[in-house]
């Protein structure tokens, strides 16, 4: 019986058009979804529960708007949903400290998270929390087996490594070959009734702060070539500049 926690983050839909207004990204009109790698973390957490028993808690951090990502996790099958309440922006240090505090408070034994969030792409949350808690940590995991303790598979130089992981541990999940389960009406009805447990944590100050957001530079215009005589030059550019052949 394990106390399993999965970290979920609400991010802009990866198909959304991002707009910068003034010096900040304007996400007011953007649809929010669960960060895609977190879906693999939820699936792995549910598999862990099925194999070893226990309960799965989905944990996020944010304002009331972030409850949606918890309800989504509940509709897929987690047992409990918890949000650390904060509306402010925080850096990774502050976030990891707050998450580590609550993970200790709720007695987590194993934590699953996505290998990185679709918005920042930093990939620091899993290892950062493990560091703070002094726990084992494996990143970019593509498969987990639960038969004799926890054994995970993660890419290593030239192939994959099979790694035995002592608990407590933080596992960050990559896509792998797993098919994630989807919600159904029963799950959605349960999610509707489920109450989000809201926790307040004294947030430590951020060590860095965002000064401004800006859009990536526009792609330079493409080059076009005509006629067979240009073939050699095109082949050279594809090889030497684009590095695609």
């Amino acid at each position: 019986m394990s106390n399993i926690v999965v970290l979920v983050k609400q991010v802009p839909d990866t198909n959304a058009k991002i707009v910068v207004s003034g010096d900040r990204v304007d996400l007011s009109a953007v649809k929010k979804v669960m960060s895609p790698y977190d879906e693999f973390a939820v699936e792995t957490a549910l598999k862990h529960r099925e194999a070893n028993g226990g309960e799965v808690t989905a944990l996020t951090l944010g304002g009331a708007g972030a409850d949606k990502v918890l309800k989504d996790a509940k509709a897929i099958g987690v047992d409990h949903i918890v949000r650390i309440d904060t509306e402010d922006e925080h850096d990774s240090n502050a976030l990891q400290s707050a998450l580590a505090t609550v993970l200790t408070e709720i007695g987590a034994e194993v934590v699953y998270c996505g290998k990185s969030a679709a918005d920042t792409g930093a990939g620091s949350t899993g290892p950062g929390i493990a560091e703070r808690l002094g726990w084992a940590s494996v990143s970019n995991v593509i498969s987990v087996a639960f038969e004799s303790g926890l054994t995970v598979i993660a890419p290593s130089e030239g192939g994959n490594a099979r790694i035995s992981v002592p608990l407590p541990a933080v596992i960050s999940c990559d896509k792998g070959d797993m098919k994630v389960r989807k919600p159904n009406v029963k799950g959605i009805m349960q999610a509707k009734k489920a109450k989000v447990e809201v926790k307040t944590v004294a947030m430590q100050g951020s060590t860095v702060s965002v000064v401004a957001h800006s859009m990536p530079p526009a792609k330079p215009a493409g080059k076009s070539y005509e006629g067979g005589a240009a073939a050699a030059e095109v082949a050279r550019l594809l090889r030497d500049e684009a590095n695609v052949i």
Binding site: K71, K182, V185, K192
Partner: peptide, 14 residues
Amino acid sequence: TEEEIMIRDMVRDW
């Protein structure tokens, strides 16, 4: 309602 949106999105994704 929140539930109606979730059901719509579930079927849309499927």
